[in-house]
Design a protein around this nucleic acid. Sequence first.
DNA 1: GTCATTTTTGACACCTTGTCATTTTACTCA
DNA 2: TGAGTAAAATGACAAGGTGTCAAAAATGAC
Lengths: 263, 263
Amino acid sequence: MATLTPKQREIRSRERLILTHSVTIIRDGGLAALSMDTIARKMRCTRGTIYNHFPNKEDIALALAARAVRRRLRLFEFAATLSKQPRERMAALGISCEVYADDMSDDFFIEQMVRHDFVWPKTSEGRRDVLHDCEHKCIVQVGLSVHDALASGDLQLPRGGCVEDVVFGLWSLVYGGLILEATSPSLAEAGITHARVAIRRNCNALLDGLGWQPLYDASSYSKYIRRIKPKLETHAKEILADTSEQADVIHERHASSAAEGRT
Amino acid sequence: MATLTPKQREIRSRERLILTHSVTIIRDGGLAALSMDTIARKMRCTRGTIYNHFPNKEDIALALAARAVRRRLRLFEFAATLSKQPRERMAALGISCEVYADDMSDDFFIEQMVRHDFVWPKTSEGRRDVLHDCEHKCIVQVGLSVHDALASGDLQLPRGGCVEDVVFGLWSLVYGGLILEATSPSLAEAGITHARVAIRRNCNALLDGLGWQPLYDASSYSKYIRRIKPKLETHAKEILADTSEQADVIHERHASSAAEGRT
DNA sequence: GTCATTTTTGACACCTTGTCATTTTACTCA
DNA sequence: TGAGTAAAATGACAAGGTGTCAAAAATGAC
């Protein structure tokens, strides 16, 4: 069972091919354009074949989302290595979100799309778990820097405050801000023309409000960002280029896939 | 043209009936359960009749969303009357968001749903404009309090900062937080069990970070919230009970609807 | 009560989904 | 190399949704 026949290898690689084609379809037609038929036509096979790999298109979207979160995690992990100072590391994590939304925008969008009522209820539980697991790890990663700040004394939480609340605040601010930027056409009209700048400033204001040392200093902050942003962008490209990661096969229509994929 | 025949009145009220039934359907089956067929069956008529009022189900959802934002605006406007002190007024606006998400949760959810790729592109431009207009007014409402704070000297913006950025920050924090609370199952798992408390604390930290006077004081803050939240809840109920607002008829299939609804 | 107008109807053509018996293909072993 | 078996690919199917439109029914004016 160790060696795979050519056919088996073809099938296995098709998993990835389905995802690749799906990304293309979603990119230039939105999630609405993704149908088993569209994919099948692109792959020059019939719908039935695709059903051998995924139980429905929602699960394909979820597989894409899972891959997206996995990539995001890798970017976060890299960002966390860029500085020893907790507040700088938080800044790096914040910027990595920007980079994620810009340089891995397909992934950024699919993550949102998958939450929707039309998609979420139809997805399979197993794959949902994979997604949650990665998400959790992302949150933990951010939490580590907050813990470090506490340990080093840079940050003192107010009575009743906890690490998770801080993480949640930054997460809301960055994610909320990016989503608003992406989906609220009334934003520009409301005078918010540089959402990114505003998000950065607001994150810093929040951390300052918590008394996180050293407090925000415009020049050293922007100097630091200028230094690390290119690194993050380069790393994002590397992550995107990395095709080594195995597609997580969960669904099985024929018993064979199970035997081949697990035991 | 001033007086309406019984038939005309029936047709006009049906618009509202469609929306009412749609809310019920969405509430206990999600937006995915909403189909022209489902509505027609509930209303004891055929799909064709509904097409006389709305060009597609997406526009029904958008009409619901527009009504939702209109209600949100009314709640905001009320919240703004609750205190003369800018920082207290900001708190009232923040709490009104909580009340909106809790006591007008159908409206809160439909607002999000409508943004989605499956819905947005299919909606009619006219109704999208109505939505944007209301949204804009909501933002302006929050902006007024920030301006007041500047005028009174309670707040001094940092070099390069602008009112809109502050509004955007609070908006991201509250909206982002509420959305995360509603859609991220990994939240609890990550230790964020009291999202509402966290959101409040983070908003205050953000305002403190900007130096907005008077700085956060736990006891006076919670005393204030205890005083105004019931008022907001009562007002929310009143808004929900108010059926007077005219459904904004935009779509017309028969020329008659246009003549009746506009000139 | 009749007639012109407007509304409602239901059948239509079209699309997408998920299933499954049947056909085709690939691998194994002689 | 060829036969047999196991697996995968196929395409036809039923179900269920959309949006349209000619025809039927209902309404209100006279």
